[in-house]
């Protein structure tokens, strides 16, 4: 059957408009702090809450170059090939989260603190959509 090119019926049009308006509501539920990163490549698959990494907290204590140059973190949320074994072995987060500079890996819930179902990405608190706003 040939698909109809006619606009949808009036009732459906209102529904569509409502859907668009709802989609445009800026961060109705999420009021994350600017730069908060969600990491959920592996967490939930392994029965843990997603990781919330707050940039604001870390940049008060370390300049960007420490993690993004010395530790090798890419400028893209979730792009690093890392897992808990790496962290326990002192790589990535494990360079500090070792019980000496910052809390150690036994304190699971301090990093794995996100709502289940979140996807990996960077939040910008509604100020912008982060990389790739289109």
């Amino acid at each position: 059957m040939k698909p109809s090119l006619r606009p949808p019926a009036r009732g459906k049009r209102w529904l569509a408009l409502l859907a668009v308006l709802l989609a445009l509501l800026p961060g109705a539920a999420v009021r994350a702090e600017y730069g908060d990163v969600v990491l959920n490549n592996w967490s939930q698959k392994n029965g843990m809450r997603p990781v919330i990494f707050p940039h604001w907290f870390h940049r008060e204590r370390f300049r960007c170059k420490v993690c993004h140059t010395e530790l090798g973190f890419k400028l893209q949320a979730g792009a690093d090939d890392m897992d808990m074994a790496d962290i326990i072995n002192g790589k990535f987060c494990g360079a500090c989260h070792n019980g000496k500079i910052a809390w150690s890996v036994e304190h699971c819930g301090l990093c794995h603190s996100g709502k289940p179902g979140l996807s990996t990405g960077i939040m910008s608190g509604g100020t912008s959509q982060g990389p790739g706003i289109f």
Binding site: R31, A32, E33, H107, S113, G114, P116, M123
Partner: peptide, 12 residues
């Protein structure tokens, strides 16, 4: 209440 952190997490 930021929409990211799980309120059910006791460590929050």
């Amino acid at each position: 209440s930021d929409g990211l952190h799980d309120p059910a997490n006791p460590d929050i």
